[in-house]
Computed example of a mutant assay.
Amino acid sequence: MSTGPVITLVRGDITDQQVDAIVNAANSSLLGGGGVDGAIHRRGGKAILDDCRRLRAAHYGKGLPTGQAVATTAGELHADHVIHTVGPVYSATEDRSELLASCYRESLRVAGELGARSVAFPAISTGIYGWPMDDGARIAVRTVRASAPASVTDVRFVLFDKAAYGEFEAALAARP
């Protein structure tokens, strides 16, 4: 019986991770932006942007829909792939938690299709998209525990600051 992946927390820069796949909290254009998205594009180099442009031209002319995921090369990152996913913008009046869970679920599905064993996630939607960190951490951990394919054995949540790390630590300690 599978017990799921080993989930670890890392405080630092996701672009420093040596994994099979790094998940990018992308914007729907797939053409780079701020935060994690901008850092991945800057550090990974032109090859990532070139792949994203090909995806836009071939399949995602209107952009990648929220909650979906797609892979590109990782360029100069220490990974084989970048899995781009578009998180929802937080709303206090509309429950979008299923869309956030879908980001993690779909990224793991793509990772499984790629044969990735190790995946590094940021805290999707908790930056400029305004998702409360405690709820974002709870959704992330719960979804990864429930959705990781057997081939994915190592999941890392790479968190930029102490506060985010603390919220993910609490979510990881809580049992479903």
Rank of each mutant, 00 (worst) to 15 (best):
R175P: 14
S2L: 14
A123I: 04
T15L: 07
E106I: 02
G63T: 12
G44Y: 06
A120K: 07
Q18F: 03
V82L: 08
G112H: 01
I14N: 00
A163H: 14
Y165L: 14
C52H: 01
A69P: 07
Q68V: 08
L64M: 13
S151M: 12
V141E: 12
A116I: 02
D134N: 07
D80M: 12
S97C: 09
A111V: 06
K162Y: 06
A92T: 11
V82W: 03
E167W: 01
R96L: 12
C103I: 05
R56E: 03
V141M: 10
I124L: 02
L64N: 13
I40A: 08
R54F: 10
C52K: 01
I7K: 09
D161S: 02
E76V: 03
L9E: 00
L49F: 12
D154R: 13
R42F: 15
I139E: 02
H81Q: 15
S97N: 06
A163P: 06
N27Q: 07
S125K: 08
Y90D: 00
L64K: 03
I40R: 01
V89E: 09
R109G: 07
P132S: 05
A171F: 02
T93Q: 13
L159S: 01
R156L: 04
D154C: 11
D95T: 08
D80A: 14
A74P: 02
V144E: 05
P149S: 15
G130E: 06
S28K: 11
L55M: 12
E167C: 11
L172Y: 14
D51E: 11
I40S: 05
D50C: 09
A58C: 14
G45Y: 05
P88L: 08
H81G: 00
E98A: 15
Y165A: 09
L9A: 02
L30F: 10
A57T: 15
P65I: 08
S97V: 10
T8F: 01
R56Q: 10
T72V: 11
I83D: 00
E169M: 10
D51L: 02
P88Y: 12
V155E: 00
R105C: 04
